[in-house]
Amino acid sequence: MSAGDEVRVFIVDDDASVRRSLRALLGEVGVPAADFPSAEALLEVVHEDTRGCVLLDVRMPGMSGLQLQEVLRERGLKLLVIVLTGHADVPMAVRAMKAGAVDFIEKPFNPQLLIERIQACLDAEAQAHARGQRRRDAEALLRSLSTREREVLELLVTGKPSKVIASTLGISEKTVDVHRSHLMRKTGTRSVAELVQLWVVAWGKEPGS
């Protein structure tokens, strides 16, 4: 299992004491963690498949927390970010959340609360990861269909009857039925309703929209 597959907490803070204490706490809780003294150090390690959650101090020399968030988004990384800040004023919170942070915690924090937030974040990450997995699976199923099957499917999920599909595609009703049974067997669905659900998971949108 590569490092990118393990779910971890990435601690980014210029203060070594804060980093070490967080490592100690997370170790005690049983959450795998890694720590980095700067945003640049983190960016050297993470990649598209890296899973986990970033505990980010917004105020650091060099690249700031907000700038790091931008870079992560540009690179399409799916890491979730919890912003830690010493001066939790409203404009700072707004900027952090706008930049895509899932949470915002003021230093010094209640450790219990921090752990809960981290757990919540990891749960959300896991869900997002699972959601992504399902979408990728559905997409793979749909991509395995032939061109004609896909044309039939697109019309099926919009609720068109076989007669309309046949006339639309310029084929016989019987041929439409054959295609339907093939694609349902390939996708493992037993009804049009299941087909619609698979479509939504794969493409993330209602058919016909």
Partner: peptide
């Protein structure tokens, strides 16, 4: 330092 302190304490 306060953050470090409370975190060490919790750990």
């Amino acid at each position: 330092p306060l953050t470090a302190i409370v975190t060490y304490c919790a750990a």
